[in-house]
């Protein structure tokens, strides 16, 4: 019976509200902070009543940070663009390489397939600092240090295993008979991959791409060591807010709000794919 009592509804509502409050409060607080000056932020006790100011945003967008010690040049918008470009390009490369590989791992049982797949996954276990030093030296020798290409390559350590393992699971969930049926109907192996496997794993590929994008976006260490100022993403660029005259909380908050926006928008847009992806069981028809 699908009947829920009033008490149950109230309890459920309360529980959901609590969870939302718990998770959303920091974001909400940062959102408020981004419209305040450092003085109002550091008031004791804090208050949500204040005169909103857009100065933090104008400082970020114009690239001029006014501090007590004078005007600082910051390249936040450039950093934001770098983040966007690096993450999108890494995910694109990761999908182009990872999706066919995932299909191979899911459908073809070749010698050592499990070992190779696991080795790729193990890249996720290794502490990034462990590989950074040799990577930096090699990259400097072959001229990849401080290039977008080099960064996107290193970002594959993050996105490729993720995409490979998530998408592989979705490919494995497609009944083999559905693919056989398409081939017996007279279609080639390649056509079956494009017309059956790809569309049916589509929600999973979207979900994996989204997750990989978020992971790439949030990366800090690789970019910190391997990129100079003009190639840095926001995660590294935000260090600029720690100035000689103190931490610029208002700008940090505004920077966070701006840097959350792209992933937030992407997540909102891709949410239906994620939900669809989670209910992929419906494929078994």
């Amino acid at each position: 019976m699908e009947h829920t009592s009033t008490l149950e509804k109230v309890l459920r509502g309360t529980a959901i509200t609590l969870v939302i409050l718990f998770f959303m409060f920091p974001i909400f607080w940062i959102f408020l902070m981004s419209f305040q000056t450092n003085e109002t932020i550091l008031r004791v006790p804090p208050s949500i009543v204040f005169d909103p100011t857009l100065s933090n945003y104008t400082a970020l967008i114009t690239g001029k940070l006014d501090t007590a010690a004078g005007t600082l040049e910051i390249s936040f918008m450039k950093n934001l663009w770098n983040s966007l470009f690096l993450s999108a390009a890494s995910v694109a490369v990761g999908l182009v390489l990872g999706v066919p590989a995932a299909y191979a791992f899911a459908r073809l049982k070749f010698r050592g397939s499990e070992d190779i797949a696991f080795t790729l996954l193990s890249f996720r276990f290794a502490p990034p600092l462990l590989v950074l030093l040799p990577l930096t030296i090699y990259f400097q020798q072959i001229g990849l240090a401080d290039t977008y290409l080099g960064l996107i390559w290193v970002y594959q350590l993050i996105v490729l295993p993720l995409i490979l393992w998530i998408v592989r699971g979705y490919f494995e969930d497609i009944p083999a008979d559905v693919e056989y049926a398409y081939r017996i109907a007279g279609h080639s192996w390649g056509a079956t991959f494009r017309k059956i496997a790809l569309p049916l794993a589509g929600p999973g590929i979207a979900a994996a791409g989204l997750l990989a994008f978020i992971f790439a976006w949030n990366n800090f260490v690789f970019a910190l060591v391997l990129a100079s100022a003009d190639k840095q993403p926001v995660t590294v660029g935000a260090l600029a807010f720690v100035t000689a005259s103190g931490i610029q909380y208002g700008q940090v908050a505004a920077g966070i709000v701006l840097s959350i926006l792209p992933t937030f928008a992407l997540a909102l847009y891709a949410q239906r794919y994620l939900v669809e992806g989670l209910s992929l069981g419906a494929v078994k028809g």
Partner: peptide, 12 residues
């Protein structure tokens, strides 16, 4: 031509 026991229709 083949018909499968579980139909194996293309769901999309």
């Amino acid at each position: 031509g083949m018909a499968f026991q579980n139909f194996a229709l293309f769901p999309h």
